[in-house]
Design a binder for these strands. Structure first.
Lengths: 145, 145
DNA sequence: AGACATAATTAGAACTATTCTAATTATGTT
DNA sequence: AACATAATTAGAATAGTTCTAATTATGTCT
């Protein structure tokens, strides 16, 4: 259903980054994280479940939810919400927003223009502390992108 | 739970704007819309249900959902989603984003700086057509705003 | 290594916001 | 008034997610 952006990807498992400190890296969490690293198409929990089952048929859906929560809590992945659709998960930790192409359904990560952030264009009271910010866009990409 | 921003508000019912063309204005839809106009605190469907029941005890929750959907479809109100929490509803039709103060829980409408829009700071491919865009922010307002 | 405390996993039940179904009622039109 | 159509309603159904309680794994301390 959803495609893959096709970037070069690390081979995971062996290359799990140091943010993992403080998170008990169980087989299940490693596998969930690895699945997310290998196919960065913003899968839902259920899609992750399906992919993990290929390597680990005995895992339960509850565990997938638990693992995803743990990874989000430790800042290794992000949760992405479009409206009230099922949450999706994203390993891209750089500041970005999400754009879903209405033709293909593919979700793309969109960066900011150099040196820009969203709050540059917003009328925020001086001294406001932003803790969480989520921007989702749907639309049509130009032909041939 | 949620407060009211305290703006001057029209008395509704009598002052329903012309966008209503094409929408059959039933007692229930009028009442739902009127409730939203009178207290602009971004209530959930369930909160709207509770408020409408004061004037119209026989209304059903399904009708409230139907009415909200109809009003959204006709562009009279907007649906607001924070994560996967219950949808909230907003009569403000001007371009704005939503900020929830983590201290009070109150949701504020935030405007753009003069002449700015979000896409100004985003790296969108040239010719991208944006159909829907939602930005939600959570954080802390400075003391005494 | 063995024993212990703690945390993670699991299956399944439970929960909640929302949507659906089918029957009834209201609306606007001829 | 009669008709066709759309809206309302109660309640059942659905779907994503969370909870519960039992089991298993993990890391630590001796």
């Amino acid at each position: 259903m959803l495609g893959n952006d096709g970037e070069a990807l690390p081979t995971a498992a062996k290359e799990i980054p140091p943010e993992l400190q403080g998170l008990r890296m169980t087989k299940q969490r490693r596998e969930v994280y690895s699945v997310l690293l290998h196919n960065r198409d913003h899968p839902t929990a259920n899609e992750v479940f399906g992919r993990v089952q290929a390597d680990m048929p005995s895992i339960s859906l509850a565990t997938v939810y638990n693992c995803l929560d743990a990874l989000v809590d430790h800042g290794l992945i992000n949760r992405v919400n479009f409206d009230r659709e099922p949450s999706r998960f994203c390993v891209n930790l750089t500041p970005h927003v999400h754009f879903q192409d209405k033709k293909s359904g593919v979700i793309h990560d969109l960066s900011f223009k150099d040196g820009c952030q969203i709050t540059d264009v917003l009328d925020l009271p001086n001294g406001t502390e932003v803790s969480e910010l989520e921007l989702t866009i749907r639309g049509f990409l130009p032909k041939g992108s």
